[in-house]
């Protein structure tokens, strides 16, 4: 299914990028792309989990209003230092719900962050180039062996004497 963040959830997630992701991610202007990526991942997770996350993030946002330090503001409107402290309070929260929510949201944001090409380039992580190089070498060096193995996949070797002729027709 394709999932889009409700606007309120998107705002909370955007406010959490500087809290969870390394400063470079914000400096590189990746906040929106990371939050988009979270939506992609959420489209693949079980519906119950997805609904829980949306509800949890909404609660996280609203609950800040009763935290004296926030002075009536929602979580996504907190300045950086308070945003950090609010997240930390939930990370160490007394209830498993708070801890599990920050854990799950943190995982989604970190995953999205390190799927951004700009972040991967910083790490010098170039797996596709490596794959192409070794794929070519494999075929050059072992081509004959590989073809023999492919042929063996369909070579007859019955476990028991065939009981009747194998099917040949489709449908």
């Amino acid at each position: 299914m394709s999932y889009q963040h409700p606007p309120a959830v998107r705002r909370v997630l955007e406010s959490l990028v500087p809290v969870v992701c390394p400063p470079e991610a914000v400096a590189l202007g990746l906040t929106a792309a990371i939050v988009d990526h979270v939506a992609l991942t959420m489209s693949a997770v079980p519906p119950l989990f997805r609904r829980g996350l949306v509800l949890g993030l909404t609660t996280y946002d609203l609950a800040a209003m009763v935290w004296p330090a926030a002075r009536g503001r929602r979580a996504h409107r907190l300045p950086p230092e308070l945003a950090e402290r609010w997240f930390e309070r939930w990370e160490r929260g007394l209830t498993p719900v708070e801890r599990e929510l920050t854990h799950a949201v943190g995982q989604l944001l970190k995953f999205g962050c390190y799927e951004q090409p700009a972040m991967l380039a910083r790490l010098g992580y170039t797996p596709q180039a490596w794959i192409e190089q070794v794929t070519r070498r494999r075929l050059q060096v072992y081509g004959d062996d590989i073809r023999r193995a492919e042929a063996a996949i369909v070579a007859p070797d019955p476990l028991r004497p065939p009981v009747r002729r194998p099917r040949t027709e489709v449908g």
Partner: peptide, 25 residues
Amino acid sequence: IPPAVIAMTSHERGAALGALMDAYD
């Protein structure tokens, strides 16, 4: 494990996560 999965399963966040991941190679 690819960077995204390492980052995801790490307990670090923020600058500490960046420092961990900078050593990925």
